[in-house]
Design a protein around this nucleic acid. Structure first.
Length: 987
RNA sequence: GGGCCUGUAGCUCAGUUGGCUAGAGCGCACCCCUGAUAAGGGUGAGGUCACUGGUUCGAGCCCAGUCAGGCCCA
């Protein structure tokens, strides 16, 4: 502003500006992803006629195949943030491995069967009134009608989600996805079932299972959702059958009773139990105690009762008892074997259909080690038909598995008349009332606790005994790799061996092993219509018929006709491929005509858990078993990961994967669970941010933990994306007149500033590729971001601006920098391509000047550039340190006089830089000045700190604005440095 | 209630087998540039490492417990 020259020649500045090589590019600063991403998608779709995915499959990859297997999302609703993260991470895996030189096929899949869809479809049928038409139909015909509607429904959402996943720019075989409802898939699942049957791992048994009253079906663990529920909790006194025996157990004789103040005849003591499910009391068959706990005989408000010593104060306080007196104590083992009377059932009932069941052991105190002192009384109400622990206890002590509750949640005829036919939920209050009236209810109150609910209908689930099909966790296998071994043993063996199974992150191993140790037998049957029928038949004597060979035969039929055939064909037709004579397991005298088809379908987890067979082996052969990696949310340690492992262990003798990667869940910005209604729709995210920004965000996540989601974070990702984009743009804008193609950089001198940038790239590439390799996308993201900002934008690009703008366009120095920029841009686009797949391709095509119509050039067909051949001088670290010291020195020089120099513009300054070791002397002083952003740099071996020199009294080059010593008036009257004078062609 | 995990600047995260003054980015403050311009650059201020106790010459890191949050289960 204060230049006398500009005052005398006001337009001189403008003239010189025209002589500069200023940046220019068509690569827009504004990304406009909403419009441009779909255009890229379209272009990739046209690539080679069949599209990018097909072209990549046809490439001959040097490193062979890396098979990744996609877990199927449920074909219901739009994709949400969880899918977004999941699918991006999978896409990063696929694209990074591809660019590392592997052939990485990726078959996307959908889970199509199951309760959520059937439930939704049934609701729609009810709402539309169409359900009435179905009511008059035969079972099979009605099921077929429902299945048809379900199939249509699932198909609709497969299509919707496919579109959304493609819009996310994920690269997959969307033309040939796998659907669990496809014919071949269904056949392949039944083949897995057949394989497990062959190994003797499948059986039918009566067991308490989680039962949805609303949907009248057994539920898998994965179909449960724990929610708070308020229940009536009751403390109930079970009167002892033999008072004397109880007193004796506490070491009290007749006299002690009197001494304790007990009137004669002595009060009959009770055993006090606590339950939050009063409706299971009719099925009570035992009371469990812990053998080692201390129990007390307590007088409470006129009654004498037994409870754990530790529970006395808590229980009586809660009930606000007036009189509490501990009469005696004893240990649990002394109580075992004592008998009691059921509070409202006189004679132990027998399960319906089992008139001869042995009830002699009923109503006895038994021991169990799961009894705790934290809640209740230390005496546990035991109903073998209504609880897993209770069932096991019942088996151990010889109790019948008595379950008086029907599938619809009402009591059967074996219960007292006042209960029979009543809903269990209504019975809670009634039972409490009866107990109170008969004097058995000590205390009752409302109690809120976490309780399992049917994840779909959100209704509470009950435990109920039913006949179901199971895959045994502790059943020794027969033949093959499982001979004499159980699935649990094998699963624990594999998960315990890091060489055979890798976990990312490492703690997944302990988590999965903990789950395997405690998992029950897998109940694989469901009583619904929308699923894959279990090909079992009922024989005339009521027993079940299903062998490995018969299942295999049905599988063959399913492969041909799909599982609908189960509902359309006769048992004889179903077994058309089956030859009883050739089946050693066939029951003697089997008459196919006398069979009835079973009505159960498979747990959907069995279907998705067979995908290693139905998809990977099917499409890629045994080469794809086991596959390299399964990648899902951490909930799948119990879900898909485990339920894929078990069938594979049974059939193949090993897990279907070599490594498991898990990611966390999306929470809100306070780390709380994301409410489903509050989430963003995927469309609005595309609309506001674009897929590349969302992908860049996912790439930045510490995905192994739970992830916080908020608009603010997407905005930050957008800012960060723009920084990277602008860096690319600036490089491209300085290559407008470069036509050197892919340059040879081997002659770049090691001390050249270009050599430094190229050397830094090599460090970056090593870091990024290594991070991609170990699935640490976040590390790659941070390295790429820092490289764009610090190495390029702040340091290298700022330093080379002067030569790019002011050097003669074809000067060797400028051309070398352009060659560097070209190589860096090309390589950087490739490193970014797996994440910012649209932007990287857009920039890559701009760099190579590809015509819009030319679809053949695509960064995604290429591999990473891991090394650019260049050598950077060892002294560069010292140079960068000196640069930073100089920056700080200049900052101080900005301080107004007299304390500082009152400098403002670094180009008004020169620097004297200390060089005690002489390292810097090997570098070009002009380069050093450009790196520091000042006009001149002089080295001083003796100085101990950088010193700023005020050059404002020295002439300034009107073209480069530098104050170098060679600036003087030229023939055109302008003040120019030698370089600038040469560039404009004057003396 | 149990298993696994998380808790480090306002925010998102690094912190190797325990060892200099606990780092980075974003944000913020101040400043520069106006030839990357709805861009670019420089400098700086921010931390009782959730809490309590223990082991150690020494703890963000190891141990025990507490609190808060998440996933899975009961």
């Amino acid at each position: 502003m204060s230049e006398s020259t500009s005052e005398t020649r006001p337009d001189a500045k403008r003239d010189y500006r025209k002589t500069l090589n200023l940046p220019k590019t068509a690569f827009a600063m504004k990304a406009n992803l909403v419009q441009n991403e779909p255009a890229s998608l379209k272009r990739w779709g046209k690539l080679g006629g069949e599209g990018l995915y097909a072209v990549l499959r046809a490439q001959n990859k040097p490193k062979g195949r890396f098979v990744f297997h996609d877990g199927p999302p449920y074909a219901n609703g739009s994709i949400h943030l969880g899918h977004l993260m999941n699918k991006c991470l999978k896409d990063f895996v696929v694209r990074t491995r591809t660019m590392m030189g592997y052939d990485t096929p990726y078959v996307p899949g959908w889970d199509c069967h199951g309760l959520p869809i059937e439930h939704k479809v049934m609701t729609e049928l009810v709402e539309s009134g169409e359900i009435k038409k179905l009511e008059g139909l035969e079972d099979d015909a009605r099921r077929m009608a429902v299945r048809k509607a379900c199939k249509k429904y699932a198909g609709k959402f497969v299509k919707l989600q496919t579109g959304q996943m493609e819009r996310l720019l994920t690269l997959a075989d969307y033309k040939n996805p796998y659907l669990t409802m496809a014919k071949a898939y269904e056949g392949a699942v039944i083949e897995v079932l057949s394989g497990l049957l062959e190994r003797g791992l499948v059986f039918r048994a009566l067991k308490p299972v989680h039962w949805s009253v609303a949907n009248e079906t057994a539920l898998a663990e994965a179909e449960l959702e724990y929610m708070d529920r308020e229940d009536l909790s009751v403390y109930v006194d079970f009167e002892a059958a033999d008072a004397g025996a109880v007193y004796a157990a506490f070491g009290l004789g007749e006299q002690d009773k009197k001494a304790g103040g007990t009137p004669a005849p002595p009060l009959t003591p009770s055993f006090m139990i606590w339950t939050t499910t009063p409706w299971t009391l009719p099925a009570n068959l035992a009371v469990a105690v812990h053998e080692r706990f201390e129990y007390a005989l307590v007088r409470v408000d006129g009654n004498v009762t037994v409870m754990a010593r530790e529970a006395v104060e808590r229980v009586t306080k809660a009930a606000k008892s007036d009189e509490v007196e501990v009469l005696a104590t004893t240990t649990g083992n002394r109580l075992v074997g004592l008998r009691y009377k059921h509070p409202f059932i006189d004679r132990a009932p027998r399960p319906v259909g089992e008139p001869d069941a042995d009830t002699t052991n009923c109503y006895t105190v038994v021991s169990a080690d799961y009894v705790t002192l934290e809640d209740g009384t230390g005496l546990v109400h035991t109903a073998p038909g209504h609880g897993a622990d209770d069932y096991l206890t019942g088996m151990r002590v010889g109790l019948p598995t008595y379950c008086p509750v029907l599938g619809d949640g009402t009591y059967d005829a074996s219960t007292p008349d006042w209960l029979s036919g009543m809903s269990i939920w209504d019975a809670n209050a009634l039972i409490a009332k009866r107990l109170e009236e008969s004097g058995h209810l000590f205390f009752g109150h409302k109690f809120t606790h976490s309780y399992p609910h049917d994840w779909r209908s959100k209704t509470p689930v009950i435990f109920r005994c039913t006949e179901q099909w199971f895959v045994g966790a502790d059943t020794p296998g027969k033949g093959g790799a499982v001979e004499g071994r159980t699935l649990r043993e094998m699963a624990l063996e594999f998960t315990g061996d890091p060489d055979r199974l890798a976990f990312v992150p490492a703690w997944g191993r302990n988590r999965m092993r903990g789950m395997l140790e405690s998992r029950p037998d897998w109940c694989i049957s469901r009583q619904r219509a929308w699923g894959l029928p279990i090909p079992s038949f009922t024989m005339p004597d009521g027993s079940s018929f299903m062998t490995a060979a018969s299942a295999k035969a049905v599988a063959t039929l399913f492969r041909e006709k799909g599982s609908d055939v189960w509902f359309l064909a006769s048992p004889e037709e179903m077994l058309a491929h089956y030859d009883p004579a050739g089946d050693p397991e066939a029951p003697a005298g089997l008459d196919v005509n006398g069979l009835k088809k079973g009505a159960d379908i498979l747990d959907v987890w069995f279907e998705s858990g067979s995908s290693w067979n139905a998809v990977m082996r099917e499409r890629f052969g045994d080469e794809a078993f086991p596959v390299e990696l399964y990648l899902e949310g951490s909930d799948q340690h119990r879900g898909w990961f485990q339920l894929s492992m078990l069938p594979a262990l049974g059939v193949m003798g090993r897990p279907p994967y070599k490594a498991l990667l898990t990611h966390g869940f999306c929470n809100d910005k306070d780390g709380k669970k994301l409410s489903k209604s509050a989430g963003h729709t995927i469309e609005s995210l595309f609309e506001h941010y674009g897929a590349d920004v969302l992908r860049w965000w996912v790439c930045s996540l510490a995905y192994e933990n739970d992830v916080k989601v908020d608009d603010e974070f997407f905005k930050l990702a957008g800012e960060s994306y723009r920084k990277v984009r602008n860096t690319l743009r600036f490089m491209l804008s300085n290559l407008g007149d470069y036509d050197g193609g892919m340059p040879d950089l081997s002659s770049v001198p090691p001390t050249s500033i270009d050599a430094w940038a190229l050397g830094e790239y090599n460090k970056l590439a090593a870091k990024v590729v290594a991070a991609y390799e170990r699935y640490d996308f976040r590390a790659a993201h941070n390295a790429l971001y820092d490289f764009c900002n610090e190495t390029l934008s702040a340091t290298y690009l700022t330093a080379v601006k002067d030569r790019l703008y002011c050097d003669k366009a074809d000067s060797p120095r400028r051309r070398q920098t352009q060659a560097t920029l070209f190589a860096l841009s090309d390589a950087l686009c490739r490193l970014l391509a797996p994440v910012m797949c649209h932007t990287a391709d857009e920039a890559y095509r701009a760099l190579h000047g590809v015509d819009q119509k030319d679809t053949g050039v695509c960064v995604h067909l290429l591999e990473f550039v891991e090394t650019l051949s260049v050598r950077a001088d060892d002294g560069w670290a010292a140079v960068l340190e000196a640069r930073h010291a100089a920056m700080i020195a200049f900052e101080q020089a900005k301080t107004p006089a007299p304390e500082g120099l009152g400098m403002e513009n670094p180009l008004d300054a020169g620097l004297v830089v200390p060089d005690p070791d002489g390292v810097l002397s090997g570098f070009d002083a002009g380069d050093l000045a450009d790196l520091c952003g000042v006009s001149t740099v002089d080295l001083d071996g003796g100085a101990d700190a950088a010193r700023v020199i005020d050059l404002r009294d020295r002439p300034r080059c009107e073209r480069s604005w530098k104050r170098t010593p060679d600036v003087r008036e030229r023939s055109d009257g302008g003040m120019l440095s030698d370089r600038d004078a040469e560039a404009v062609g004057i003396a």
